[in-house]
Design a protein around this nucleic acid. Structure first.
Lengths: 212, 212
DNA sequence: GTCTATACTCGGATAGAC
DNA sequence: GTCTATCCGAGTATAGAC
């Protein structure tokens, strides 16, 4: 009960490496092959294990998929946060946040399965009793906090409208991103990054365009 | 094969009235009691029928729930389109569209179950093989068209920014609305209408506020 | 640690009586 | 037209062999 268990429940140092490996493989597979209400069995086979073998590392299906999303944030953060100290996931509080975010959105368009998984879970996890509920609340708040900070700086520099407070703006950008994902899933011709960018430009006070 | 069948498949004039009645009851029940992955059986009992009895009127679960959403648009349209000729669902092309839309958003906050159902289906129906795929594509496009028309008028009147074309603006408003719904489901404190309204104001060129 | 096999549950669909 | 009863498939979880 008191020993150091840094993984999740019941996993000792031994298993956690494999766990991470599984999650990375899962990310690749889902990104490439898509997610259509995937079952544990399907994912297990894609990852090279039996269903029971996979569930050996995770307590339940919900935990498994939640961890996949967490891992996704982890790799995205590592990739899009060039110089990082202990920055708050899923994004660093750096200044060039908007272009970086647009880059990430462009990247998302390359991994439809992950977008599907995320959107699906976001809806399901709205139920407070869902295992991923806390994860989404926390992630969502963290994302907005980082955004709000960056947007405040832009407002202070006179580069962004002050007609809306930064917190609300952060919420709006988040909503647009999430909403565009759904539209894009339904119609892949939708230009998520371009639309986001257009909104940002329209709310900017300088004639400068965001570099796309 | 040639006789007039105005309902869906295999339902003759007799059944369609009951069908509509069922859908109305379903709307009430879901709005009030919420939707958490509801099964046909649950809904059937809430509506006063057995599972088999309910499926007598609908070919499948997916068709049933799609029809519920369609009915929802129908009653919303009837309620929020005061004087209507043959206007395009789910909204009339009238001028006071923005305040009306805000009203509808406020109304949505009163019927969480319907929002959950809609969001869930919107994600699932992203799959082109989903029975509701076409419904969502059509609805979405129709909504944007109505919006784009109204927004164009506002731009022509010099009351709205011309930094973004009306079509893109329509898409943005749609995305914000959808995204805010997800945020609101996760955290009911989120003020959907207020946030939408703030964005609209910020994109307006006149100092006038939208009447909330 | 990983597998096979199985138990169990749930939910949608269908057959057939009334 | 509506019910009861049943079937069937899917999917998760678990037991137990290796």
């Amino acid at each position: 009960m008191a020993q150091a268990q840094q993984g999740r429940r019941g996993s000792y140092a031994k298993g956690i490496a494999k766990r991470e490996e599984i999650l990375e493989r899962a990310l690749e597979v889902i990104a490439r092959e898509g997610y259509r209400g995937a079952s544990v069995k399907e994912l297990a086979e894609a990852v090279g294990l039996s269903q029971a073998g996979l569930l050996h590392y995770f307590d339940s299906k919900e935990e498994l998929f939640t961890e996949i999303l967490r891992k996704r944030d982890e790799v995205d953060l590592a990739h899009y946060a060039p110089a990082d100290g202990p920055a708050a996931p899923p994004f660093p509080a750096d200044l060039d946040l908007i272009p970086t975010y647009l880059e990430l959105i462009r990247h998302n368009a390359e991994v439809p399965g992950l977008v599907q998984l995320f959107s699906r879970m976001a809806v399901d996890a709205a139920d407070p009793s869902h295992p991923a509920h806390a994860f989404f609340l926390g992630r969502s708040a963290a994302l907005r906090a980082v955004f709000a900070e960056a947007l405040t700086k832009l407002q202070d520099d006179g580069r962004l409208t002050t007609a809306i407070d930064a917190d609300t703006l952060a919420r709006i950008f988040q909503a647009v991103a999430d909403g565009l994902q759904v539209q894009w899933m339904q119609d892949p011709d939708v230009d998520m990054a371009g639309t986001m960018s257009a909104l940002f430009d329209a709310l900017s006070t300088t004639p400068t365009q965001t570099q796309r």
